[in-house]
Design a binder for these strands. Structure first.
Lengths: 210, 210
DNA sequence: GTCTATAGCGGGATAGAC
DNA sequence: GTCTATCCCGCTATAGAC
């Protein structure tokens, strides 16, 4: 077989594995199901990826390296303080919305309490990845300029991330509590972006700035 | 054996089961481990709870009925608008902090995408459970009084819940990004409550109110 | 009500033909 | 590189003694 076909097979397995791991988690996933969805034999999974755990780690690796790449791109663009914050929220929500896989895998790893994952995350942040420093700088700059009220920037960062991520994580519940959410997805997403931006900007800007 | 001893065994099993399900999730949990931790024989789990799924549902049921009870109590106390919001944040964060089990089980059910769970949640809210109506009323009242700026209360509710819940869910990651968090737990919790309250109140109150 | 023993099978992993 | 066949362990669940 040609190397191209080989790559096809590897990729087919990875795609199928991602689907199944996202839906069922590491423990709930079945190698047989991955093989079926990939349209290949179960033994091939072991040929290419040795075992289940290893295959799972492959998915985690690729998913989070893509995530860090995206965040780096977002972080590196600079605007005036207020625009910068709106821009971050806009991009962040877009990314999560378009990468539900990322969100679920993040959830599984958090619940697993996988220390190795946490340490990798830490390493990725420390090495050449300027988040959250860049975000903190924006807020500090606003505080120096006198446009943002005095507070601990860390709290704001935690709050933004939480508002953006948890909304999607708990979407099934929120949509039960507030049925209107599901009616017009894109409309609602835009409303959500505006609401988070407003809360944040009204919440950290000094009254005189509004 | 006396009925009291029977209740002891049932309770021991439930406690052990809660621990294991919280740590490993439904798929990752092992009946043998539950039996070991409860100090009883594996067959007893089936004698009392028929099968694994049923035992798990028992844990979910009791955990969430306790949750709804607590939220009802919190919601039913009334204060002036601003205090009411601070009070809710205070109580909400306290509850989550003292009930990590609840948090993790919620996470597992969200990731499982368990529709039955979502529907039960919906039912619990509809039947005699005044959240989020009570919260909406507080915000609407503030808007009528002219102390709160015009906005969709739903967005605020989603934001508060997200900020409070996700902080604890992602604590292992946040503590890697901001190592200071772990130094003084109670101090930090108080700082967090204040930060969320400030963000919210500055963010939804009209400038003239500050 | 609690135990021992075991059924029964699902599922990860490997050997080996092609 | 891909398949078939099979191993074999681990786990849920049950039967049955005490």
């Amino acid at each position: 077989m040609s190397p191209i076909e080989t790559e096809d097979t590897r990729a087919k397995i990875l795609n199928a594995a991602r689907q199944v791991f996202v839906e069922k988690g590491l423990d709930g996933a079945r190698m047989q199901e991955i093989a079926d969805r990939a349209g290949v034999n179960k033994a091939l999974l072991h040929y290419y990826y040795r075992n289940k755990e290893n295959l799972y780690q492959e998915i985690i690796r690729s998913t989070f390296s893509q995530f860090f790449q995206t965040v780096t791109n977002i972080i590196n663009s600079t605007h005036p303080v207020e625009e910068q914050i709106r821009f971050f929220i806009e991009q962040h929500i877009n990314f999560i919305h378009q990468n539900r896989d990322f969100l679920k895998l993040l959830g599984y790893e958090l619940l697993r309490g996988n220390e190795t994952f946490f340490e990798n995350f830490e390493q990725a942040i420390k090495k050449g990845f300027q988040f959250p420093e860049r975000f903190i700088q924006v807020i500090l700059k606003g505080m120096e300029e006198g446009t943002i009220r005095e507070h601990n920037p860390m709290q704001t960062i935690i709050s933004v991330i939480s508002m953006n991520v948890f909304f999607f994580l708990a979407f099934p519940l929120f949509s039960k509590i507030f049925p209107g959410i599901t009616e017009n997805e894109t409309t609602f997403l835009e409303e959500r972006k505006k609401a988070v931006g407003d809360l944040l900007l009204y919440g950290i800007l000094k009254p005189s700035q509004k």
